[in-house]
Nucleic acid binder design. Sequence first.
DNA 1: GCGATAAAAGAACGAACGTTCATTTAATTG
DNA 2: CAATTAAATGAACGTTCGTTCTTTTATCGC
Lengths: 204, 204
Amino acid sequence: MARVKGSIGSKTKAAILEKALPLIAQYGYAAVSMRMIADAVGVNVGALYNHFPSKQHMLVVLMSDHMDGLLAAWNEVDTGGMTPAQKLESFVRFHISYNITRGDDVFISFMELRSLEPEGHKRIEKKRKAYEGVVRQIIQDGQTCGEFHVEDAHVAAMSVLGSLIGVNTWYRAKGRLSKTKIEDYYAAISLRSVGYDAEGKSHV
Amino acid sequence: MARVKGSIGSKTKAAILEKALPLIAQYGYAAVSMRMIADAVGVNVGALYNHFPSKQHMLVVLMSDHMDGLLAAWNEVDTGGMTPAQKLESFVRFHISYNITRGDDVFISFMELRSLEPEGHKRIEKKRKAYEGVVRQIIQDGQTCGEFHVEDAHVAAMSVLGSLIGVNTWYRAKGRLSKTKIEDYYAAISLRSVGYDAEGKSHV
DNA sequence: GCGATAAAAGAACGAACGTTCATTTAATTG
DNA sequence: CAATTAAATGAACGTTCGTTCTTTTATCGC
C-alpha cells in the first residue's frame, strides 16, 4: 500500500506523540523502539520519519511540549493578591492535579533527562529550572514576609517538589484516596514543611 | 588469548557489578549494553556470561544486593529508647548519608523497577515496601503517642521518602551545601512535615 | 481534471544488540 | 606432574535497532 485514505500529516504527528508518551513513560526511552511506537499508532516505521527527523528529536519535542504546557498551565492559575501560603497551597494542588491527569508527561520529563543529548538537554533543563524557580520564589517570598520559616529556600523547594513528584510513583486512580484528599494532605504537609504556622499566632 | 593470568571468578564478578552500577545509573538499564559493561571491566563480552546467566539477572542481583544492604544498614542503626521524632531524624540522616555515598545504588533501585521482569520485580518490590514501611511505622508511632500530627501516615511517609529520594537528582559533592547541612535541613523539614512541634508545648 | 505535493507502505541498510560456543590457557586438585 | 576444572578469548548466531529510500497512492492547488 501507500498513502492511506484520510491521512493528514498533522493528525498523524499528534497521534505519534500521543502514543509514544505512555510507552516511554512505562518502558523508558531506550527500551521503546520506533517500531513499537509505529505499531501503537497503526502505521509503518518509516512513516514516523515523515514527521520527526529522529527518535531523539521526538523525545525532545515530547518533553519540551510538556514543560511548556506545564508552565503555561501554572501561569493561568490566578495567584494575584494571594499570600505566599495561599500561593504554595495553590501550587501544590495544581501540581498534584496535573500530575494525576498528565502523569506520563510529568514522569518522562523528570526521568528521561539523562536520555537527552547535550543540545536537547540544555533546552529542557532550562524549562525545568524555571518550574523549580516557581516554588523557590514562593518560599522565598514567604520567608521574607515572615510567613514561612525555613533553613534554606532552595532545599525547601527541592524537598517540596521531590515529595510531589513522588506522588505518581504510587498514585493509582482506583486507590484508597481520592484526588481531592491527596491534594488536601499534600497541601497541609507542604505548608508545614516550610514552617508555616496555620494558627498564625503562637510564633508572632 | 584465553584465561588471563591472575583471573579469579569471584573478583571478576564483583568487578562486573561494580562497573555496571554507575553505567546503569547514568544511562539506564536499557541503554547500557553488555559490551559497554565488559569494556568497563576490561573483559570480553562473553566472559560476563560466566558469572551471570543474563543481563536481566544482573540487574536483579544489583538491585537485590542494594536493597538488602540498605535495609541491613538501617537495622544497624541503634534506635532503642528513641522517641518517634528522634527515630525519624535518625532515619532522615541515615537515608541522606546513604544516598550521598551510594547514590547510584539508590537511584537504580527506585528508577529501574520498570526494567524488571515479573519475577524479579516482585522480589525487589517487596524489599522496597519494607523500606517504605520503616518510615510509615515511625510516623504511625509518632501519631499514636501524640508527637506527630498527620492527616494520613501512608501519605506522610511517601512524602518524606519522595523528598529524600529527590536529593540525589540535584546533590553534587562540590555544591554549595555540605552533607551535614543537607542532613540538618532535611531533618528539620521532615519533622515539620509530620506536624512535629519542636517546642513541644504550644499544642499540648 | 491535472500536475504537484504530501503521506504512507514496505523493503532494505549497516550497526548494534543479547547470547552461545568452540577454543585456549591458567589455576587447582589428586 | 598429569588430569581436571575455571575463566577467559574471539568469532559467530539470529534479532532487532534507528534510519533511508523507492514506490505507490491520496490530497490539494490551479
